[in-house]
Design a protein around this nucleic acid. Structure first.
Length: 339
RNA sequence: GGACGGGUGGGUGAGUGGCUAAAACCAGCAGACUGUAAAUCUGCCGCUCCUUGCGGGCUACGGAGGUUCGAAUCCUCCCCCGUCCA
């Protein structure tokens, strides 16, 4: 399964990153708890890299333990980017991520540092690498009106509207899929063109980077076991206090990160609706399902070098290092421009 | 010991004679997803056979027996659980 390329260690470390026409970019994909952060730090230390989070939840300030944001100790001196970008009430999006990530990528490129992404959110990676369609960002006012319409009538109302604006998209999007219907209608109204047409116009992929995708694929049972244990560890580290503190500090109850896995469950517990044991169980369960969705998504990702284990497993780290080293070497050769 | 109430598929729980392999929800499995994506949505979900069809067979509503053309649904006995009275 894992056929890592052979390469003598060490020779890879001093490979120059600056001065190429195409910069390498390591993307570590895998389900939660598969050890992406640990592997990223290992690779960063080995190859003079820095870590970029590619995770829709870790961009929120104050939501640390529950989103598995790497702690200072876990970062082991490696610089981390794209964490703590916004306050909890800010509606962060894939488009926003892309522009912020591109800026960081370019900065690291100039400083000849290897960019290493820890990818939990597949959509964000796709938005970054392949780009998004040339569609307008979300419009809160328009959405408010659409929501009102949906509430006044029914979800079927939204689907009828969509069918009129873009029959093709209406066929593709389920008549109960509220968020996707709203986005589709939003784009249609804002651009004056059907979403399907906007999509057909293509995307703007990231230029100047050559992604090296490394996938972590631990056995399902082992992953679920680790999720179970990690959930408990997070609680031991004071997750509940974190939630209580957020509530105390007046973070709006309806802000998005409160819907993330665990935060709603722990809030319910703080309100006395459920026992901590029940909440813990529910959290592990939700996390398992999330992991499954990630696996499903990443399976379709192209050109991933899959490694059959956890990112903190020395054997996996070694395999990943060989892989990255191999890519750095070959791309250095094929790249004529090096000072 | 007595009086009620109850035992339904992995869980909760509808269902009181045929339209019921048995609602709904949860869990589980699989999948989709181009700007809220840790979100959202979809399919499957007793076993089995094939010419994969609103197909066939088998098993199933605590247990055993009975009534009936037909029972998760009615009757009898037994077992178990809960509440109350002793």
């Amino acid at each position: 399964m894992s056929t890592a390329p052979k390469l003598t260690p060490n020779q890879s470390e001093e490979l120059a990153i600056a001065g190429r026409d195409s910069l390498p970019l390591v993307a570590i994909v895998g389900p939660t708890a598969s050890g992406k952060s640990a592997l990223a730090v290992s690779l960063a230390r080995k190859f003079k890299g820095e870590v970029l989070a590619c995770d829709s939840t870790q961009v929120y300030r104050g939501f640390d333990i529950g989103t598995s944001k790497p702690t200072l100790e876990e970062r082991r001196g490696v610089a981390h980017h794209l964490l703590d970008l916004v306050d909890p009430d800010f509606p962060f999006t894939a488009g926003e991520y892309r522009s912020r990530a591109v800026a960081v990528l370019n900065d690291l490129g100039h400083r000849a540092r290897l960019s290493i992404l820890t990818v939990g959110t597949g959509l964000y990676l796709r938005a970054l690498l392949e780009g998004l369609a040339d569609a307008p960002a979300r419009s809160e006012e328009l959405r408010a009106r659409l929501e009102a319409g949906a509430n006044a009538h029914s979800l079927q109302y939204l689907h009828r509207v969509l069918r009129r604006l873009d029959p093709e998209a209406a066929l593709r999007i389920g008549s109960r899929d509220r968020p996707k219907m709203i986005r589709a209608i939003e784009v249609c109204l804002l651009t004056g063109r059907p979403l399907s047409e906007v999509h057909r116009a293509g995307r703007t992929p990231l230029e100047g980077y050559q992604p090296i995708k490394v996938g972590l694929q631990p056995p399902r049972a082992a992953l679920y076991d680790r999720i179970e244990r990690r959930t408990r560890t997070m609680l031991e580290r004071g997750w509940l206090d974190e939630v209580a503190g957020l509530v105390r500090n007046g973070v709006p109850q309806n802000s998005k990160p409160f819907d993330f896995i665990g935060y709603s469950e722990l809030r319910a517990h703080l309100e006395g609706t459920v026992t901590l044991a029940a909440a813990t169980k529910a959290i592990a369960q939700a996390t398992r399902r999330y992991a499954k969705r990630q696996v499903t998504w990443f399976r379709k990702e192209s050109l991933v070098h899959w490694l059959p284990g956890f990112g903190d497993d020395p054997a996996i780290v070694a395999a990943a290092e060989r892989l990255v080293a191999g890519h750095l070497k070959t791309s250095a050769k094929s790249s004529p421009a090096s000072t």
